[in-house]
């Protein structure tokens, strides 16, 4: 039996055929669609490296069956830069040295984008730390991550004011 589903990933629609329903969204992105920017750190929802946006919300793609998000809009790290320009969160991660080895970084950035969209942390570092605590960084670049998210939140609100 072959199952099929369709996913819109970073604006591109993909028809995916699976031998059975086991593959997770993470494994479909990485092994079948070749979108390897999303990382597998624990495969059990305990590290956040696999964070992507599903219909605009940050989730762990390792605990999501691909079949159950059939038809959804997925955003991965490959899809956040626009027209060659980095997303403000990406730029803030570089400027604030918010990573070392880089392995957790795609998940951190997707989580930060989700956090900022949720709108509850604002510029409060303690709320940012709590809101980013679902993303482990074994290099422990946490001070930079917190500062980058605060910085990006400010940049995005300035952008909004400008465009308003």
């Amino acid at each position: 039996m072959t199952l099929s589903l369709s996913l819109t990933v970073n604006g591109d629609r993909h028809e995916v055929h699976l031998e059975d329903a086991r593959p997770t969204l993470l494994d479909v992105l990485r092994e079948r669609l070749g979108l390897v920017g999303t990382k597998k750190g624990c495969d059990r929802g305990q590290c956040g490296a696999c964070t992507v946006l599903v219909d605009g919300r940050r989730i762990n793609s390792c605990l999501t069956l691909a079949m159950s998000v059939d038809g959804a809009e997925i955003t991965t790290i490959e899809g956040v830069a626009r027209n060659g320009a980095m997303h403000p969160v990406q730029a803030a991660f570089i400027d604030n040295d918010a990573f070392q080895c880089g392995y957790c970084t795609p998940g951190q950035i997707m989580s930060a984008i989700g956090l900022i969209a949720e709108g509850e942390a604002g510029g409060d570092p303690e709320r940012i730390r709590e809101g980013m605590s679902g993303n482990l960084c074994r290099c422990a670049a946490y001070p930079g991550i917190t500062e980058a998210v605060r910085d990006a939140t400010e940049r995005l609100s300035q952008n909004q004011r400008k465009s308003a």
Binding site: V36, G37, K39, F93, D97
Partner: peptide, 19 residues
Amino acid sequence: LTRRDGMLKVTGAATYAAD
């Protein structure tokens, strides 16, 4: 200086073995 590999790492383009 900021990291020379920063752009690769924040865009998901840095290639780790399993990629």
